[in-house]
Amino acid sequence: MSTHPTMQAIEYTGAGGREAVSVVELPVPTPGPGEVLVKVAAAGINRADLLQRAGNYPVPPGASSVPGLEVSGTIEETGAGVGPWEFGTPVCALLTGGGYAEYVTVPAGQVVPVPDGVSLTDAAGLPEVAATCWSNLAMEAGVQAGEWVLVHGGTGGIGSFALQLLKGIGARPLATAGGPEKVRRCLELGAEAAIDHRAEDFVERVREITGGHGADVVLDVMGAKYLERNVEVLARGGRLVVIGLQGGATGTLPLADLMGRNGSVTGTLLRPRPVAEKAEIMRRVREEVWPLVASGAIRTTTDATFPLERAAEAQDRFEAADRTGKVLLVTEQHAAKAER
């Protein structure tokens, strides 16, 4: 059990920009039945954290008001009914909130061991992206080996992981990215081809690359901006999975085109899913994705790390146009231990 009655954490004081980010002292939470207490080493920053800061992503009922959807750390305490997690075991976890803190409680089914070959710090950037990619590409879209899959934003946290995952399972990944440098990075990450959306039409280029076949699956973070063109790029029987709204939330869906392709559109969010669904996703991640990480087929890509108290700066870096990979917050307790 934690010997510290309070902990450092980040909270938002109202809705706004970086001025809303505050360092606070909160009580260390106590794990309830079926939960574990994790002593946080690092926390991953995700777009949902910034949407919450701006007041555009309400905290789900019962969730912590502290932002942060993924952490790495060590097992500190277990609640009633939790299986044999040993004190001090290195883990990473998918959260509904509470990650920007020195301790966090989480349902035991959302906690998994750190993959072999990954540092405890870097592991903080894995749960959200691994769960997002596997649940949407494998469980929702049913991607099969040999299928063409278009990933928008191929150098972002989700995109960079998705390209490697797709290559690891034998699919044929394609990517869009902004500028020649990011295009090159997509190729390094496993894309068979990468399209500079600033200079090229991605629908025309996908058709050219695939010999007129189109994309069997599109993984989209843009939403409304790309909706019509995403349907246009689909192969017959193609599946469009929308997981972000960076280009707007309301668009026109060309139903006749979609029906003519025998296509489908799915929109998903990970954060509000029931605990049982998240546990099943993390079970599949541990079984199907972690071996690819351990083998080196999927490499963690950390862009930058910041101390917890510099969360506002870290979120600025997350929004930077030249960011590639994950941005992480590191707790003082973990940094001090690493220095010894």
Rank of each mutant, 00 (worst) to 15 (best):
A193P: 06
S135T: 12
A141C: 15
L37S: 08
L150F: 05
E19H: 14
G68I: 00
G248R: 09
A130Y: 06
S295R: 15
G156V: 01
A215C: 10
G325K: 01
G109Q: 06
E288M: 13
S64P: 00
A194N: 06
I75N: 12
T89G: 09
G179N: 02
A15C: 10
L51T: 07
G32A: 14
G251R: 03
G211E: 09
V118Q: 06
L26T: 12
S64I: 02
G238H: 04
V71M: 07
W290F: 15
E70T: 01
F306G: 00
A297R: 14
E319S: 11
T105C: 13
D303C: 04
T105L: 06
G244Y: 01
L329K: 06
P127V: 04
G214C: 04
V71F: 00
R317P: 03
G223K: 07
P90W: 01
A215R: 06
C186A: 05
V218F: 03
V206W: 05
V233S: 09
A131E: 06
E309S: 13
L329A: 02
E313T: 03
P113G: 09
R283A: 15
T78M: 05
T266S: 12
L37F: 07
V183R: 00
T74N: 13
A131G: 10
V206I: 11
Q246R: 11
E25W: 08
W134F: 09
A338K: 13
A297Y: 07
A162P: 03
D216Y: 01
G146F: 04
A124C: 08
T252Y: 08
A321E: 14
A162H: 00
N46Q: 14
L234W: 04
E147N: 07
S64E: 07
P29D: 10
M222P: 00
V293C: 09
R273I: 03
A235K: 03
A194L: 00
A141W: 04
L137M: 14
D196N: 15
A336M: 12
R323E: 05
L270A: 10
D257C: 11
N230S: 11
E181M: 02
R229Q: 14
N136S: 12
E339S: 15
L245N: 13
E208A: 14
S64F: 02
A43V: 03
W290P: 05
I158Q: 04
V28F: 06
P272N: 13
V40Y: 06
I209F: 11
N230W: 01
Y226Q: 14
P31A: 07
V285N: 04
R185M: 14
N262I: 08
P113M: 04
A256S: 15
V289K: 12
L94Y: 02
E208S: 14
V293I: 15
I281D: 08
T250F: 10
V71L: 07
P180Y: 02
V289P: 06
H4E: 15
G157W: 00
A171T: 07
E128S: 07
R283P: 03
L234A: 08
L189T: 00
A224W: 03
A93S: 09
P61Q: 14
V91G: 08
Q315N: 11
V118G: 04
T74R: 15
E76V: 05
A41P: 01
G142D: 10
D196V: 02
R283V: 05
H334A: 15
G79Y: 03
P31D: 07
A276Y: 12
A108F: 00
A141D: 10
G214T: 02
L163V: 00
V40G: 10
V40Q: 12
